[in-house]
Structure formats: C-alpha cells, structure tokens
C-alpha cells in the first residue's frame, strides 16, 4: 500500500476512447491491478464484448479476443476447456450480457465454467446511442423510450446478480459499484476474490459493477454519480449474493 500510486503494468499507455467521467476506465484499472497483484499477466486471456468496451484490447497489455455480441461466455468456455491453465475473463456490458447474451451467461454459470465475468451495468446501451437496456430503470428516458421506461409494456429491470445466484451450481456472484472511492476499494476486493476462485479452479465467478454513463443519461459526470447513488443503488443492492463455500 503506502502513499504511492502508479498505473498498473497490465494497462498500456494508450489513452482510452471513453467519454469523460465514464467508469469503464476505473474498472479497467481495477482488473489490471488485480492481474498485476496475482502475477498472472503472462497467462491471462480477456474477452471483450460488443459495446463501449469493444476496444478494450487496446488498453490491456495481455492477450485479448473479441467475441460476437453476447457470446463472450461461449468463447470463454471454449478457451478455458481447451487450455485450463489459462486465466480467462469476459468483460461485458448490460446490453451485451443481460439482453442478447442472456442465454450464454445463464448456461455458462449453470455449467459452472471456471472463468470470471466482469459485468458492467450502467442501465443503458452506451455505444449504440443510448437505447433502452434490460437494466434501464422504470421511468428512465432513453432514445427508444423517450417518455421513460414503461414497466407495463416492457417489465421491470433485470437484476442479473440475483438471477444468476438462484442457480444451484456453485459460483461466486457479487454486485459492487465504482462510483466513489469507498466503493472502488470494495469492488477491487471482489474482483480479486473472483480471480482467486478461478485460480483455485473452484467455480464460475461474476462481479456486477454498477456504473455511470454520463453521455447517454444526459448528465454531467458529477450529476451522473449522484443519480446512480440515488436511483440505481436502492434497486441494484450491493453485496455478495453467492459464495462457493
């Protein structure tokens, strides 16, 4: 610890394409820090999704693979089964994981595939222009629901951590957030735990991270943090939903 702070080696010097205040950058850094601390950079393979993090391979200095929309867990299954010695993780957004990739993630979790999923939940489709996602909050305005999400028409937002923790297969499922330093410290601990379970070959692990999307929410980065804390956190409750013990 100490008082020093530097960029983790698992991140490249490349400047990210993310909007100002986007918490993807924080999550990238936390994953990179954990990989450095566990000393697994040489044998880690990341799988980037379709979404804002599609270019994540430019920012991490280890092997990366790009998957078709929502199919990152299927690809991770393949890589991990062929090369069980590798550390495999998928990095997916809510449009990717909770919508088109719902089938893949549920079955991967139910089979107990021994990889890690970093699930970034910002309640909106970011890259494609702010459309409604399965995780959009009731009444939240997006480009495809300009009057706000109507729960009579499209139902309530999906709580992925709760959904996946209801499976009987062993797993590590947790929800954290990265909107303030106190939460960031806890989120890093959760990511480290998830990777450690994979290193021990114990179970499937998923860390859901409640994030912000200032651009598509139409807010400044500071207002977005406030909105996330007041609106998202009471619905998406933080905590460990399932542990392999």
């Amino acid at each position: 610890m100490g008082k020093t702070f530097k960029k983790p080696e698992a991140l490249t010097d490349e400047h990210t394409h993310y909007c100002p205040g986007c918490t993807h950058g924080v999550i990238h850094r936390l994953v990179a820090e954990v990989i450095d601390e566990l000393g697994i950079r040489g044998r880690t393979v990341g799988i980037s999704p379709v979404g804002c993090a599609v270019l994540a391979y430019n920012y991490f200095s280890f092997d990366f693979q790009e998957a078709a929309h929502g199919r990152a867990p299927a690809m991770a299954t393949g890589i991990k089964r062929v090369r069980p010695d590798l550390i495999v993780f998928t990095y997916q957004g809510d449009g990717d994981l909770a919508s088109i990739g719902m089938g893949e993630i549920i079955h991967a979790a139910n089979r107990g595939e021994k990889f890690t999923t970093i699930f970034v939940n910002n309640a909106v489709y970011g890259m494609t222009g702010g459309q409604m996602a399965p995780t959009t909050m009731p009444g939240q305005r997006t480009t495809t629901c300009p009057l706000g999400r109507n729960v009579e028409e499209v139902g309530m937002p999906i709580k992925m951590a709760e959904l996946l923790s209801s499976l009987e297969t062993r797993g590590y499922i947790t929800r954290q957030t990265v909107i303030k330093p106190k939460y960031i410290i806890k989120a890093k601990e959760a990511i480290k735990k998830a990777f450690t379970y994979q290193l021990e070959g114990r179970c499937f692990s998923l860390v859901e991270l409640v994030s912000t999307c200032p651009t598509n929410w139409g807010l400044t980065p500071v207002e977005a943090v406030k909105w996330a804390e007041e609106t998202l956190l009471p619905y998406y409750k933080l905590g460990e939903y399932k542990t392999p013990e």
Binding site: K3, F5, K6, Y18, H24, V26, R29, K180, P181, I184
Partner: peptide, 19 residues
C-alpha cells in the same frame, strides 16, 4: 495529504503519486 482518493476515482489514470 496524499490520500489517493483522486487516484482511485480517476477513470483515466491521469493522476499518479511517486515517492
């Protein structure tokens, strides 16, 4: 006071503290 709160929060790793 070098508490690192800004370093933790920065999404772009723009802030570093060296000894």
């Amino acid at each position: 006071i070098f508490c690192k709160a800004c370093c933790l929060m920065c999404p772009d790793v723009a802030i570093t503290i060296t000894e």
